[in-house]
Amino acid sequence: MFPGGRRRARESGKNCLKREIKEELPKLKLGRLSLWKEVTARNKRSGRKMSDAIFIAKNAKGRLAIGDKKEIDRAAWQKPRGIRLTPTSRYIRDRLFPRKPRRR
């Protein structure tokens, strides 16, 4: 699953991301952040409203040391294909990393 969190009152999306990363992965340092896309939709199966701000970091460095063991049991760098994802995470992955057509 992609990292996530909830924005606090009067907190910008970018500041929320910085706070969540610092809480959950305190050794990870992100480079310049830019908003890639805001997604507001309704989950077709559950009917739940989804509202996500997706940021891209220029770079990331440091260790994936876990800060809050109650929220995260493990962290690892993964390729975007071949992992189980929530519908929101799948949407994000498919937009960021579209499948390339197979050559024949």
Rank of each mutant, 00 (worst) to 15 (best):
M1G: 08
F2S: 07
G5N: 09
R7I: 14
R8F: 14
R10W: 11
K14G: 07
L17M: 01
R19K: 02
I21V: 12
K22V: 04
E23N: 05
L25D: 11
P26M: 01
P26C: 03
K27D: 15
L28E: 00
L28G: 05
L33I: 09
L33N: 14
S34D: 10
S34C: 12
L35E: 11
L35R: 13
L35Y: 09
W36R: 02
K37F: 00
E38L: 08
V39L: 09
T40V: 14
A41N: 10
R42D: 01
N43Q: 09
R45G: 08
R48W: 05
R48Y: 14
K49G: 06
K49S: 06
M50F: 07
M50E: 15
F55Q: 03
K58P: 02
N59P: 07
K61Q: 14
R63G: 11
L64D: 13
L64K: 08
L64Y: 09
I66N: 06
G67M: 04
K70G: 00
K70H: 04
K70P: 00
I72G: 05
D73R: 13
D73H: 06
R74Q: 14
A76M: 07
A76Y: 03
W77L: 05
W77N: 01
W77D: 01
Q78A: 03
K79F: 14
P80L: 04
R81M: 09
I83N: 14
I83T: 13
R84D: 11
T86Q: 07
P87F: 05
S89E: 05
S89P: 01
S89A: 13
Y91F: 10
Y91D: 06
I92K: 04
L96Y: 05
L96G: 01
F97D: 05
P98C: 04
P98E: 05
P98F: 06
P101I: 07
R102E: 14
R103M: 01
R103F: 00
